Computed example of a mutant assay.
Amino acid sequence: MALNLIKLCVGCESPEQLEGWVKHRLAEKVRLGQPLEHFHTTRMVPKRLDDLAGGSLYWVMKGMVQCRQKLLEVRPFTDGEGVSRCHLILEPSLVLTEWQPRRPFQGWRYLKTEDAPADRTRGEAEELPDHLRRELTELGLM
């Protein structure tokens, strides 16, 4: 069973906003003639690389896990100042998930598959306004 990562999506309030960012970044790469891959840079390099094969990066937005992106590769590198970092190479498309409350934390954390929220279809996610979905999730009714 694959291991996943979970991370706060700082400055992003919805999966739709994240999708817009991804599309913008990919369009910039096309414009600049750069390789067409989507990644997120992080300071810490996961130690359990083999366990992450086939996993995903789950995004926390406004205190709730709301979506995930398939993790394609973890690419460690050293930046210009000699600091170890890594690129989390991600599938550009998002998969919406059931909302799951999460308290703020720094960096990323490992997330076991059995603790990860289930995927949902886009139609299901749009049935309720966000404020109702949040309240029902916090009450444990969703």
Rank of each mutant, 00 (worst) to 15 (best):
G33C: 09
V10M: 10
G63I: 05
E138H: 12
D50W: 02
G55D: 01
V30L: 13
V74N: 00
R48F: 07
S14K: 08
R48M: 09
R48L: 11
T78W: 02
T78S: 03
V74D: 06
G63H: 05
K112A: 14
W108M: 01
E91L: 04
G82V: 01
D119I: 09
L26V: 03
C9W: 05
R43E: 11
H38K: 11
R133G: 04
T137Q: 02
V30P: 02
P15F: 02
G140W: 03
E114V: 14
L88R: 01
Q66S: 13
D130E: 12
K112S: 11
D79K: 06
K47Y: 01
R102A: 05
Y58T: 02
G63E: 01
R103G: 02
L90F: 04
C9K: 11
S14W: 03
A53R: 13
R48Y: 04
E37A: 03
R134S: 14
P35L: 04
E91P: 03
L18F: 07
G107W: 06
E126C: 10
Y58W: 00
F39H: 07
E124N: 07
F77Y: 15
L88Y: 00
G82S: 02
E124K: 04
S84E: 15
R120W: 10
S56G: 01
R120Q: 15
P35K: 06
Q17I: 05
G82H: 01
R43F: 08
V22I: 15
G80A: 05
Q106I: 07
F105M: 01
Q106D: 08
E127L: 15
P46W: 03
R133D: 09
R133C: 03
D119W: 06
Q106W: 08
V65T: 03
R43H: 08
